[in-house]
Nucleic acid binder design. Structure first.
Lengths: 227, 227
DNA sequence: GATTCTTTGACAGTTCTTTGACATCCGCAC
DNA sequence: GTGCGGATGTCAAAGAACTGTCAAAGAATC
């Protein structure tokens, strides 16, 4: 069973979160101020931390920062109120893995918790490399070659390809792509995905007009099929 | 027989619900204010609770919250009026499993009640794979083959087949198909289902004219029978 | 400020879904 | 058994929805 630490000072929200997570069979521990949260993050060995941004004593950013400085790599999900959004970037920089804006739907939050825990546990991690046909992609170096000659790929293209590569053969829904590559809040228009897929095909497929690797599943999403 | 607790202060609505549920062979108990509702939820051992959000004495959220705090995992179906979806409510549903917005159609509500009770009892989950005869269907990859050669199937076809596969041998009513595949809101005409079943038979049956796998149960629905 | 990357909107082309007409089948009453 | 009404099978066509592509606007980066 996964242990989740919630650090939140609003008792209503804390209770709601705790109840919902406990119902989903998580082992839940809680703290209602920053210092206690930080202590529990160290001593409680949580598999995931839900962290409010605004907290008494020590705010979420600080906790985040200190944990990362301590070398902890536990997934952190930051709660921010609308208006604190400017801190989002900061939060992500300081080591949060994801953030949710209040008011949030519990369903969405649970989905994210699940996603984080799964990817942390089942080694469903993003691959560092991808090879097929004459293509080699190095996701860490952001380098790609085809027949040995370099391919110019953008950050987004790497990100999309990486997610598809993480689930080779399975269909990745457009929604999953949006969530993983773009984040939960900024949903660009649907056209954006197609466009990027288009670029990728132009670079990776031997015949972009009839793709063999980046397959469209009408109404669902895309999948990467490699021999 | 399943027991359903209804907590609702509007006598008109309460009566409508009670009559309809009782007619469907549920054992119905009712309360018209929050405190009584909470008591009955504890003492009455309901299999499902229909809970109005706005109630005298103790509102639906509180009841929900307290029940979850008590460790109860009974399915809760919350009734909300349009406009009551304040941020807090929307943001933190404190443990309800489903929501219905007033005004609702009794048919939709009954469908949801049935769905909840069924999934609570049988815990049925959708399969990722289906095999019979020379057919193999992979619901994650959205791939299907017959004798090893690919079958072109659409999203809807996969969805219908998956629901049938989740209850192999059992008859799945047209209503259940509509609810699961199409959702509670948009009901297409009755012809639509037949048509899709027709496509499926054409692809999966060795002799589509006299189906052996996708069986019609006249007046009820369809079932998938595999050897 | 120039360059590169990303997003958007229009458009065409394609695929999927729904519908209606009609034939057929089934269960039921006579 | 026969006839009736409702339910289902089938098909083609209309209607929606989705995707590929492109150019241009908008952001981000350096």
């Amino acid at each position: 069973m996964s242990r989740v630490l919630i650090v939140e000072d609003d008792p209503m929200i804390l209770r709601g979160l705790r109840d919902n997570l406990a119902k989903k069979e998580y082992d839940v521990i809680t703290a209602s101020d920053g210092e206690e949260g930080y202590r529990l993050a160290l001593s409680g060995k949580p598999d995931l931390i839900i962290l409010d941004l605004m907290l008494p004593n020590m705010n979420g950013l600080e906790i985040c920062q200190k944990l990362r400085a301590d070398g902890s790599s536990v997934p952190i999900l930051m709660l921010t109120a609308r208006g604190e959004e400017s801190d989002r970037v900061l939060g992500l920089d300081l080591g949060a893995d994801d953030y949710v804006t209040k008011p949030f739907s519990i369903r969405e939050l649970l989905a994210r918790v699940r996603a984080r825990l799964r990817s942390a546990q089942t080694g469903d991690t993003l691959p560092d490399e991808l090879r097929f046909d004459d293509v080699v992609v190095d996701f860490k170096r952001f380098e790609a070659t085809r027949c040995g000659s370099p391919l110019e790929m953008t950050k987004k293209e790497f990100a999309i390809l990486r997610l598809l590569a993480a689930r080779v053969g399975e269909v990745v829904s457009r929604e999953d792509l949006l969530n993983d590559v773009w984040g939960y809040e900024n949903y660009p228009s649907t056209r954006t995905i197609d466009t990027h897929i288009g670029w990728l095909r132009a670079k990776l497929e031997s015949n972009p007009a009839s793709p063999k690797r980046l397959i469209t599943v009408h109404g669902v999403g895309y999948k990467l099929t490699i021999p």
